[in-house]
Structure formats: structure tokens, C-alpha cells
Amino acid sequence: MALISLQTVFIAFFGIAAIGFGIWVFRTSSMMRSALALLFSQTALGAMFLAMQAEFLGVLQIMMMATEMSIMAIFMVMFMMDPGGLGAMEMSHQKRLSILAGVAGALATAGIALFTQWGVVVTSAPAAAEQTRALGTELLGRSMLIFETAGVTILTAMIAATAVALPTLQRKRNA
């Protein structure tokens, strides 16, 4: 057994951090803590991407999630009856089933990961600058249509979400 590399240590550390924060999301009854725990979970994942030498994706993940989860937080506080978690409200149902499903899902995926022949693991990754360049070429070359589709889908979703969320005319008149 060779010495465990620094990369392995970092991957394990950030992975455990991501899982830990992920569990914390559902164990606290303060909505703000819940949303920010999810943020830290995602940030730990971003750091894990960095440890896996996917620099662009890691930084992107860290950047996107900060805003995304903060917006999540304000919606949590808006829509929860007890956002501070002071009333110790019960916010979950079918606990046993959910735990079973969660554990089964995790075990199944972990089992697949364990028993698949993954082939040769590549030890070295391209340099970060090269990666950024190649990803850009990929986005505007071979995968351009897919990327454009993603863009159009975002636009559609934005319009749809706004349309759904706008108050109806009736409601506006009453207000």
C-alpha cells in the first residue's frame, strides 16, 4: 500500500464535509441554518472539485451556489410558519419509509460503484488553463447545440416561473 496521496486526503475531507452538512440540512429546525448548511455542503463539493483538479467547475460551483442558496434561504423564511425553529415544529412525515429509501438508495449506488469494473484510473489531469480552453472549445464547438438548448430552456423556465408567480388580475384588483 503506497502512501495515501494528498489528493485522496482532500477528496475524503471535503466529501465528508459535504455529506455532514447535507445531513445537517434536515436535522436543524432553523430554516436559515438549513439553507446555509446546504450552501456549505455545495461549497464543500466545489472544494472537492478543486481537489479533483476540475478548477473551472469548482470555482463555478462555489460561485453559483452562494447566490442560489441565499435565495433559497429567503424563500424558506417566507414560506415556513416557524422559520426560526423556536416552536420545535415537526416538519417531516413518513420518517421510517424515507430513512429506508435513503439508505437503500445510497447503498445501491455505492454498491454499483463498488462492483463495477471502472478500468484504468487516470492519474494525471490536464492543466487548469488547458482545461478552461478545451471546455470553451467544447461549448462553442461540438456541444454548441446542447448548450444553446440549455440557454433557451433557462429563458423558458424564467418566463414560465414569472408567469406562474405573478398575481392574477382579480387579486391585483382586490389589493
Binding site: G15, T109, T123
Partner: peptide, 24 residues
């Protein structure tokens, strides 16, 4: 190297936690 498996296990655990959350 255990790196790949570690990452995949992290993914599996997050998946499980997510399923628990979405259902419960």
C-alpha cells in the same frame, strides 16, 4: 487509487440524504 471510489461514495451518500430529505 481510492480517489474514484471515494468520490463515488460521496455521491452515493449525498443521493441517499437527498432522497431522505425529498421524501420526509
Amino acid at each position: 487509487s481510492p480517489d474514484l471510489l471515494l468520490a463515488l461514495f460521496t455521491g452515493a451518500a449525498l443521493f441517499g440524504v437527498g432522497i431522505y430529505g425529498a421524501l420526509s
